[in-house]
Design a protein around this nucleic acid. Sequence first.
DNA 1: AATCCAAAAAGTGTTGACACTTTGTGGATG
DNA 2: CATCCACAAAGTGTCAACACTTTTTGGATT
Lengths: 217, 217
Amino acid sequence: MLDGQERTIVDRVMREIFSLLLSGEIPLGGQLNEVALAERFQVSRGPVREAVKQLQGRGLVLKEPYLKARVVSLSLPEVIEVFQLREAVEGMAVRLATTAMSDDELDEMLSSFDTTAASDSAIDLDLHVRIAEGCGNDRIRRLLCDELYYLLRLYRARSGNRPGRRGDAFAEHWQILRAMRARDAQLAESLMRAHIGRATRSLQDVLIAEQDNSSKG
Amino acid sequence: MLDGQERTIVDRVMREIFSLLLSGEIPLGGQLNEVALAERFQVSRGPVREAVKQLQGRGLVLKEPYLKARVVSLSLPEVIEVFQLREAVEGMAVRLATTAMSDDELDEMLSSFDTTAASDSAIDLDLHVRIAEGCGNDRIRRLLCDELYYLLRLYRARSGNRPGRRGDAFAEHWQILRAMRARDAQLAESLMRAHIGRATRSLQDVLIAEQDNSSKG
DNA sequence: AATCCAAAAAGTGTTGACACTTTGTGGATG
DNA sequence: CATCCACAAAGTGTCAACACTTTTTGGATT
């Protein structure tokens, strides 16, 4: 996600802020203090400000003049919005990947899929990442890998439960891979959309349950 | 797209750079000179740098250390990538809008659709914008209105031809609106995807023709 | 004339200082 | 005791100067 070479301080600071978010030291919705960050990283405020501005452009940080920058916080409705977007975009991604990826690539995915444990949550996103990387459309790849998956990782690192994670996801992944290997782009897209759509609906159920609870209590 | 109140110089500079892009004074792929921009806007380089960093975060500007920032330039393959993404996202947008928008809103769109001239290119994107705004998913709305449509406007302002613009787009728009009014989300999504898919294919035809030309000459 | 290298010029990266805004504090007032 | 206002403290916004990198220039060499 970040450039390998960090020739400039701004890049380094951005990576450091990223890792502060991943580690949870700065919580979602938390505030970013320029002087504190500058002291911590032993730099002046300029690079910190530019790094924050770049994060703001990415939508990871919200800011109003003269107020501290706030890390974006994903509410459950916002996570649902991300999932609705994923359903559309990942459907297209798998459609494109089904024709763009080589037999060897697909076989490799299938074999590594068989050997790895099914229940690992990192594995869950892994298939989606590899499809995004294999779809051949760089704009779609960036949207998924650099924005949406990143947000979901942050969200998962906080709320212990993994949004939309269900037991039969493993079997659904396998079906998607089979459809890709059979070069059935239409089927692969349908399966992927159903896969993410089910996760979306389980999130909506949670949301409704929460609303019922709050209205009762 | 931009905040109404510009309490800070950075915001003003960002808007000014935007208008330089829209007006074509800075061409796609052109370079941004910090000192020249600073002098032009009568500010120091700090705000200019922060504005550029924010644009970089948005993906509108590319930058490598110690080299001048370059405005992103859309090649035809990249425009096709945008259209493939649009096909997926706008399909979902119209699906959501079909259930989210009120009868009054849809009727208003239908009537304003009848009265306006069909061939205006601004009208073309207008329907898409209103669907994006009415879909109720703010993340999808921002992706379409703040990023993709903006890029396409820039591209159209340059290359005289409007990408994917065909004569029967008007009739297709009308069909989509009818499906929405009939609350047939599935049909509306199919029509929208077909609508954008046809535009994508006409772009791909242009690309193939260009490649043939260059290989011959 | 063409090539190469050093110095100057132009441009970007970073810093510390200063100006402005917001927030917190403490005392005077009712 | 509560309220309000002035003042200090903290934090953000902007600027001008300096350091570093890249590009250009101009001449020396072949």
